[in-house]
Amino acid sequence: TRVETATETAWISLVTALHLVLGLSAVLGLL
């Protein structure tokens, strides 16, 4: 259904953003 697709997209966006933040923090930590 469309609701499931929207929820899945939201989760993917959330996980991606989380990985970006963690990756950025790791890079800044190494610097």
Rank of each mutant, 00 (worst) to 15 (best):
A10V: 09
L28G: 02
E8P: 05
G29T: 07
T5K: 02
G23W: 05
L30C: 15
L20P: 04
W11N: 03
V3P: 07
T16F: 13
T9Y: 07
A10I: 05
L22S: 15
L14H: 14
E4K: 10
L18S: 08
W11K: 00
A26P: 02
L24C: 10
L31V: 08
A26L: 04
I12V: 11
L24K: 15
T7A: 15
S25K: 14
L22W: 14
G23F: 04
L28H: 06
V3N: 11
L20V: 08
W11V: 12
V3Y: 00
A10R: 08
G29C: 08
G29D: 06
V3D: 11
S13T: 10
L20Q: 07
V21C: 10
L22R: 02
T7C: 12
V21R: 11
L22K: 09
T1Q: 13
T9H: 02
L28K: 03
G29Q: 00
I12T: 05
L20M: 03
A17S: 05
A26N: 04
A26W: 00
L28R: 11
R2E: 07
T5C: 13
V27N: 09
E8K: 07
T9L: 11
T16L: 04
A10Q: 00
L30M: 15
T7Y: 13
T7W: 15
S25V: 04
S25H: 15
H19S: 14
L28A: 02
G23V: 07
T9G: 11
T1P: 08
L24Y: 00
L24G: 03
E8I: 06
A10D: 03
L14M: 03
L18N: 07
T9D: 04
W11E: 14
T9F: 13
A17V: 08
A6V: 01
A17N: 10
V21D: 04
G23T: 00
T1A: 05
G23M: 11
L14A: 02
G23N: 14
T1W: 08
E4N: 12
T16Q: 12
L31W: 15
T5P: 02
L30T: 09
T1V: 09
V27F: 01
L18C: 15
G23D: 06
A17C: 10
V27Q: 00
T7R: 13
L24D: 06
T5E: 11
L22H: 00
L28D: 01
L31S: 13
L20D: 05
S13E: 05
E8R: 02
A26F: 04
L31Y: 12
V15P: 09
E4H: 01
T1L: 10
T9R: 12
S13F: 15
G29V: 13
L14P: 08
L28T: 02
A10K: 07
L30A: 14
V21G: 12
L18K: 14
L22T: 15
T1R: 09
V21A: 15
V21W: 05
G29S: 05
E8Q: 01
A10H: 00
S13G: 09
T5M: 14
V3S: 07
S13I: 15
S13Y: 03
L22F: 05
T16A: 13
V21P: 07
I12A: 12
T5R: 13
S25D: 15
W11H: 07
W11L: 12
A26T: 08
V21I: 09
L24M: 13
I12L: 12
V27S: 12
V21F: 14
T1G: 06
W11D: 04
L18Y: 03
G23H: 01
V15C: 04
W11A: 03
R2V: 07
T1E: 05
L30K: 01
T7Q: 03
A17M: 07
E4Y: 10
H19F: 00
L18F: 13
V27R: 08
T5V: 06
T9A: 13
L22C: 15
W11Y: 11
V3Q: 11
V21L: 14
T16N: 10
E8W: 11
W11R: 08
S13C: 15
L30Y: 07
L22V: 11
S25A: 01
A17H: 06
R2Y: 04
V21K: 12
G29M: 06
T16E: 09
L20T: 08
V15M: 06
A26C: 03
T9N: 15
L20I: 07
V27G: 08
E4S: 04
L20E: 10
A6Y: 04
L30W: 00
L24N: 00
R2A: 11
L14D: 01
L31R: 13
H19V: 11
L20Y: 10
T9V: 02
I12F: 08
I12W: 14
V15H: 04
L14S: 08
L14Q: 12
E4I: 07
A6D: 05
H19E: 04
H19Q: 06
T5A: 04
R2H: 00
V3K: 06
R2L: 13
E4D: 06
T9E: 00
E8C: 09
I12S: 09
V15Y: 03
L24H: 10
L18A: 02
V3T: 09
V15W: 01
G23Y: 14
L24A: 05
L24I: 09
V15E: 06
G29N: 08
A26K: 09
R2Q: 02
G29A: 11
E4V: 10
V3H: 06
T16K: 02
S13R: 06
E4P: 11
T16M: 04
A17G: 09
T16D: 01
L24S: 05
R2S: 12
T7P: 12
T1K: 01
V27P: 01
L22D: 01
T9S: 06
A10L: 05
L18T: 10
A26H: 13
A17F: 06
E8V: 01
L30V: 10
L14F: 10
L18H: 09
L22P: 05
G29I: 07
T5Q: 09
V15A: 04
L30I: 10
A17Q: 00
G23K: 12
S13V: 15
R2N: 02
V27T: 01
V3W: 08
L20S: 08
S13D: 00
V3R: 09
T7N: 00
L14W: 05
H19C: 15
L31F: 05
A10T: 08
T5H: 04
V15I: 13
I12R: 12
L14Y: 03
S25Q: 06
A6P: 05
L14T: 01
A10M: 00
T9K: 02
L14I: 11
W11F: 09
L24T: 10
A6I: 04
L30E: 13
A26D: 01
A6T: 05
L20F: 01
L22Y: 07
L28I: 03
L24E: 00
L31K: 04
H19Y: 13
I12N: 13
